[in-house]
Design a protein around this nucleic acid. Sequence first.
DNA 1: TGTGATTACTGAAACGGTTAAGTAATTGCC
DNA 2: GGCAATTACTTAACCGTTTCAGTAATCACA
Lengths: 348, 348
Amino acid sequence: MRRASIKDVAKAAGVSTSTVSYVLNQKSSESISAQTTQRVWEAVRTLNYVPNLNARSLTSRRTNLIGVVIPQTEPGKEFMFSNPFYGELLSAIEYTARRNGYHLLLSGPEPDQSYVGIARNRGVDGIIIVGSYPTKSLSELHQLSVPVVLVDTYVKDPVFHTIGIDDRLGGLLATRHLLEMGHRRIAFVSGSISEQGVTQKRFLGYMDALSEFSLALDERHLYLGSVSFEFAQSVAQEMERRGNRETAAFATADIMGMGLIKGLRHMNRTIPDDLSVVSFDDVDLARMSDPSLTTIHQDIAQKGISAVEMILAAADGHKEKQESILPIQLMVRDSVRRIDPNQESGAF
Amino acid sequence: MRRASIKDVAKAAGVSTSTVSYVLNQKSSESISAQTTQRVWEAVRTLNYVPNLNARSLTSRRTNLIGVVIPQTEPGKEFMFSNPFYGELLSAIEYTARRNGYHLLLSGPEPDQSYVGIARNRGVDGIIIVGSYPTKSLSELHQLSVPVVLVDTYVKDPVFHTIGIDDRLGGLLATRHLLEMGHRRIAFVSGSISEQGVTQKRFLGYMDALSEFSLALDERHLYLGSVSFEFAQSVAQEMERRGNRETAAFATADIMGMGLIKGLRHMNRTIPDDLSVVSFDDVDLARMSDPSLTTIHQDIAQKGISAVEMILAAADGHKEKQESILPIQLMVRDSVRRIDPNQESGAF
DNA sequence: TGTGATTACTGAAACGGTTAAGTAATTGCC
DNA sequence: GGCAATTACTTAACCGTTTCAGTAATCACA
C-alpha cells in the first residue's frame, strides 16, 4: 500500500497527470474547468494524496530546504549545542524557515568533505553556517551557486552574505565597563583565538579598552581554552595558581561566565565581591544565573530570523550581497562591583 | 554553470549513465573493467560530481533523512528549545544520525496538518517525535508506513516504537527524597498535566510518595503553569500569596527548579534554607546552577542515540516494535536540606 | 461561414538518478 | 570447434513531478 502518486490521482479523477498538476499548483496561465478542478480535489482527498517534494524539486530546481550547519563547540566533545546560544539561534531559524514554507536540514560539520555535503548532495536552496571554519571549505562553498549566509564568521572575501554583531565593540564595552568600575587587572577568559572567529574580535576590543585607559596588555591575564562551562570553571584555580591578583574577568561567552562563577564558588570565593565578571551573548541563562550576569546583549533570535530572510531574498533573485550587523548593548546586572582603582590587592 | 549530473560524467568518461551508476555504487553483481572504472572516477573528479540524493531517493525509495519534531514548549512562545533539554537531545540525535549516513530534517509541529508534513511530503525514512501531541495526529502518522519513534510520550496504542524513562518512578524518587529529609508540605511545580505527557506520570509518582508516608494529596500545593523559567519564578510569589508554608518543592524540570530558586532569591529567601528543591532531567544547567540542583538524572544523550538506532533498525527491516526505558537516578546535590518533620513553620 | 482566439484539456519530454533485461565479445570446457 | 558461461557494457523503463507544445472543441466576430 504505497503512497498515492499523482498518477493515482489522475486515474481516479479521470484526467491526465498534467491536469492534476495544474490544479494543484493553481497556475493562472492554464485554464481548468471548475468541474474538473473539483473532481481532482476529491480524488486528492479520498486518496490522501500529498505531492512528493523531492520529486518536485527535480524539475522545479527548488527544494525549499535550508541547510544549517552548527559547529561542535568543542573539538573533543561529541555533541554540539553545549552552548545554549546555538539552541536559541536554531529555534529562531527553524521557526522563521517554517513560516516561509521551508524545512531545515540540520548538520554538524562533516568530517571528510567539510560541511558542504548537505548543500551539494541535497541541493538545498540556501545554507546558513554558524561559526568559523577553515577557509578552504568556504571557497568550496562558493563554487556551488547556492546562497550562503555566514553567521558570526569573519572573512575578508566579500562573497557571502554575512550576519553578525560588532564583536570588537562588544569586547570594548565589556572591558571598558570593568575599567570604569575601577578594575585594572582584568582576566580575559575565552576559547582559542582563531582567525575567522568572533573571539579574536572580542579580544581586540579588550585591548582597545585597555588602551583607552593607557594600560598595556599583560599576557599573564589571558586564559585561553575552549568555549565551555568546564574550562571556565577550571580557570578559577588557574587564576589562583598564577597569582596575578585579577579583580575582574571578561569571559567571552555566558556559559564561561557561569563556569567561572561556579569555579570560584568552589574555592569559597563570591561574585562579585572577590571577582567581577562580564560575559557575552546574553542567553536566557545569563538572567537565570546567580548572580545574574552583567553581559553584552545581542539579539540572538533576530540573528536567526535575518539569516533566513537573507536566504529567502537570495532565492527570490536578489543578487546583491547582504550584510547585517545587529546592535549590541551592555546589560548591567549583578556580577560586577565597583572598586577603588588604587586598591592593590585582588582576590588572588 | 549547473551542477554536473550523471549524464555529464557519462559523456566525459565516454560511457553510458548506467555504467557510471554501477561504478559509483560498486554493485558487486555488475562487472565493470578496471579501466572503465578509473575513467569514470576521473570524470567524477574533474567535473566535481556529487550525486543528487533527492533524485536517487526517487528510485531507491530511501531518503536517508530522519524527521525530527520538537515541540514548542510553550504555546504562546514563538521559539522552541526554551528548555535546554531539547538542545541536548537534538545534539545527540544529530550526531548519531550523521554518523550513520543520515541527515536530519528538523521541524516544529506544523500548525495546520499537525506534524506529519515532513514525513509525508519529504518521504523521510523515519521520524522521531519528542513530547506529547494530540492523539489524532498520531493516528495519522500510523497510516504512513514510516517508522516512528516516540520520545517521552505515553500512548496506550502499542503501535509505535517508544523511548523514555519511568517518569512515575522519577516523581516517586524525587518526592520520597524530600519526605525522607523531613519535608511534609511539598509543592508540586510543573507545566500543565496532559494525558500523554510525562508530567502526569511524574505527578502520579509525587502522589505515590505521599502515600508511602500516609499523606493525602493537598491540592493547594499544586502550582501548574508552563514548563518555563519564568513561570517557575513567578511561583515563588504565588507560594507566599497562598501561605501554605511549604518547606520543599518538586519541580518537574530543571529550568523550573532554577526559576524557583531565582524567584525565591528575589524575595530574599535562600535555597535550601528556606525551601528545598528537587527537580528533573539533570541537564548541564543543573550542575551549573547555584546551589547545584538535586535532581532526577536521566541520560539525555542516550535517549537521542537510542531513538536514532531504533529508526535505523526499522529501516533495515526489523519489524518488531521496540520499547526502551532508560534508567534514572536521584542526584543528590545542594538544593535540599534536612529538617525536623515536626517543625511547624515553613518559609511561607 | 470562415477565421482567429480562447478554453480545456492531453502527450511527451525532462529533471537526475537506478536497475532489469538485453547484447556483443571474449573465455572456458569437453 | 561448438556451445555455454562469463565479462563488459548499453538500452530502456521507471521513480514522481512539472511544463512546453500540441490538439480539439467552442466562441466571437465581421
